[in-house]
Design a protein around this nucleic acid. Sequence first.
DNA 1: GGTTGACCGAAAGTGCGGTTCCGGTCAACA
DNA 2: TGTTGACCGGAACCGCACTTTCGGTCAACC
Lengths: 231, 231
Amino acid sequence: MSHPNRERADRILDAAGELLLRMGYRKVAVDDIARAVGIGKGTVYLHWRNKELLFQALMMRESADLTDEILGRIKADPAMILPHRMISASFLVTHRRPLVMAMLRGNADMFGSLGDLALRKQQDELRTQFEETMLRHGLIRSDVPNLTYALNASTLGFYLGDTLSDEFAGIPLEEKADVLAYMIRTAFEPAGEPDPGAVADVAADLGSALEQLVSGYRQGIYAHDPTRAPG
Amino acid sequence: MSHPNRERADRILDAAGELLLRMGYRKVAVDDIARAVGIGKGTVYLHWRNKELLFQALMMRESADLTDEILGRIKADPAMILPHRMISASFLVTHRRPLVMAMLRGNADMFGSLGDLALRKQQDELRTQFEETMLRHGLIRSDVPNLTYALNASTLGFYLGDTLSDEFAGIPLEEKADVLAYMIRTAFEPAGEPDPGAVADVAADLGSALEQLVSGYRQGIYAHDPTRAPG
DNA sequence: GGTTGACCGAAAGTGCGGTTCCGGTCAACA
DNA sequence: TGTTGACCGGAACCGCACTTTCGGTCAACC
């Protein structure tokens, strides 16, 4: 076979995503997906070696799309790389993608063991680079203790809050994002206006790093040639 | 019977707590507790009408002790009521009490349905009062959007972080508490030194509110007279 | 050559007796 | 009068045979 239809692969992933949200990983049969697309089950296996790789591809596509969305905003307005804008935008974008939300909640019955370690590592590196660049350009306060942990812990609750209680379910997502932005800006950014030059520099830096991340994702999606190397 | 031994009640609760941590709510039999204390099972039922009330009492005692601990610190140093000190101290104190940690993690197999609504309500009121008092005395910034949600979401991640990943397991608790303190102080407190008068006022206010809370807890612990009113 | 779906075996689900466990009671005891 | 532990019944647990589901393969078909 050698180069299975990429457009068909996308239709398969579309169906997989839809079914995944409706029924959860365990209950989605490969045959269900195939039937939803209108192809034979064997055809699915021409694209990915097994079920798990198919769903990994789905999550990678989702991550790539999400990252692209943020990338687009940075290009439209470089000031988007300021921590408080970047983080609250990520919050919003993430919450509007049910699959991503399900993924990072680590819904165990949603996914088998989608611990894509390579990607995790790449994201970690990106985060480290992000922090270092920000610090170097003076866009993050230099007196924050244990910056990585601080950002992580301070942000986490915004993502997990509504899964644990519905106390704040009534608050619109945008308002929550504004609260997050306030907290980040006040606690992690220096007072006063940021230097436009620094912003432009960091935007360029971060932009290319994100582009690399996206292309890494995209590469992983359709490259699971069942027999050997990518076609 | 009328007034069963309060000291015996405490020994029962001690044993219950120990067993709870070792085996989880479901697997702890009332008989186990009784045997650990060296009394008959029936005697346990002279103190509490059923198993659930016993464990509710346990959690109330735990909460009361914890609150007492914080109260003591406030009395020793009124400046402890400053949000960043109060919140990070609570973080530390809480993390050092395995039962409380288990409780607020809502470990489902740890507790049946210990949704003590009355107490929840009391805590909510305390929290609201805390925020209002702080605002009125200028110890919390007045420009924080949606203060209740902001405090909640910003803090939550510190409590949940280490349950979700061991990425930061190596960081000592005290260091994490410092990070939390930094974030709260920077994002939620006004710049500059707090007014000593305001601090004293709030400490008095809050102190008595906490004392009321504790006495509310204590009342609930031993008051479950199986037949009728408290002895 | 690309595509398919019948087929295979493993694994998960289901139904059902039989057994154990355990919260709660209460007659007997000290 | 305070305390106990044998006792009761319901619920959870267990083992097991039977059934269903489903990931992955591959001979056949177009």
